[in-house]
């Protein structure tokens, strides 16, 4: 099967006055049709930067340094902005931004704000646009009257549904979801996750699901991609990461141990000492080595490559039989 999206050795750095922040530093993965990949990691690990980079809109002062983003075997990085707007952004790949539901402007109706997306990316007429919006509101479980409402009249869950509908208008194949449920209550979160699963089946979508919450990732992602300090440290199937066998990378194991479980042994809730490294001058060797309790000599000198440790399971750690 051909991949929908292939990222090859992508580097995207933020060029600040203090130096280049290596937010994405050599990331490669493929997204298959109908698949959900979960990007997970602590804040500052590059999850959101990767999301916006895929959409060809790195936040200034971010710039691509090297690598390719292949959509249908075409590298989107060198494409002119006009073409990206016409063919890629929102048409092929759309995104639900982190906190998007709180970025709706309070002075316009939901309908007016949703229409903006349509007008910007297509030449649809006003009546058709309203029809289309009503149709999509139906898919996300909202009444057409919502179009006339202002953001303050809606609950968080309803706003998030409207934002999701907006991301689906132009029939993208890939939707990047950046922390779509973080600001929501658990019950609403579970409702939104159910909705996303239904929409995915209905429209044959592929998702890139970004969150810091490994427990949530278990609910929705087919493959889990764990990032640390701008790099992928582990990429494996859901069943493998959350299965009985420990993950291949110590960082994943530690993150999993720090995830509170309602029914686990609560007394064993762990934490990872230290903080994420400064990405202007990341540590030598493995970037996790200063916080890793299993690090040995080589970890501090040589950076481990991301290699296949089992069929379909990648990890970047010297412990995996290559020490």
């Amino acid at each position: 099967m051909n991949s929908l999206l292939r990222i090859e050795n992508l580097q995207m750095h933020y060029f600040t006055s203090k130096g280049a922040v290596r937010a994405i530093d050599g990331v490669s993965f493929e997204l298959m049709p109908g698949e959900t990949i979960g990007l997970v990691g602590e804040s500052g690990c590059g999850k959101t930067s990767l999301g916006t980079s895929i959409l060809r809109m790195p936040t200034p002062p971010g710039r691509y340094v090297s690598g390719r983003i292949l959509v249908d075997d075409v590298d989107v990085i060198p494409l002119p902005e006009k073409e990206v707007r016409r063919d890629i952004r929102w048409r092929k790949i759309s995104m639900v931004f982190q906190g998007a539901m709180n970025c709706l402007t309070p002075v316009y109706t939901i309908g007016r704000q949703m229409r903006e997306t349509l007008v910007e990316h297509s030449d649809i007429g006003k009546i058709d646009a309203t029809k289309l919006m009503e149709e999509y509101l139906g898919y996300v479980g909202l009444a057409p009257e919502i179009l006339e409402r202002y953001p303050h009249e809606l609950s968080g869950g309803m706003k998030q549904r409207a934002v999701i509908a907006t991301a689906l208008f132009l029939k993208p194949e890939i939707v990047i979801l950046d922390e779509p449920t973080t600001a929501l209550d658990v019950i609403v979160q579970a409702q939104i996750i159910n909705l996303l699963k239904k929409l995915k089946a209905r429209f044959k979508l592929s998702f890139i699901f970004i969150t810091h919450d490994l427990a949530l990732e278990a609910e929705i992602s087919d493959r889990i991609c764990v990032m640390y300090a701008g790099k992928i440290v582990e990429l494996g199937a859901n069943a493998r990461i959350y299965g009985a066998k420990a993950p291949a990378h110590p960082y994943t194991s530690r993150l999993l141990a720090a995830t509170p479980r309602l029914f686990g042994n609560a007394d064993q809730l762990q934490f990872i000492p230290g903080t994420t490294p400064d990405l202007i001058s990341p540590p030598e060797g493995c970037r996790f080595s200063p916080r890793c309790d299993r690090a040995f000599g080589r970890c501090f000198q040589e950076e481990p490559p991301l290699v296949e440790v089992e069929p379909g399971h990648m990890a970047a750690c010297w412990l995996n039989g290559r020490g």
Partner: peptide, 25 residues
């Protein structure tokens, strides 16, 4: 309902639509 809605880090849930014993908001 609150307890059912809490996600747990365990495999085998991707294909399941969680039935929540609660309606609406």
């Amino acid at each position: 309902a609150l307890i059912e809605a809490v996600p747990e880090p365990a495999s085998g849930k991707v294909e399941v639509i969680k039935e929540l014993p609660i309606y609406g908001e």
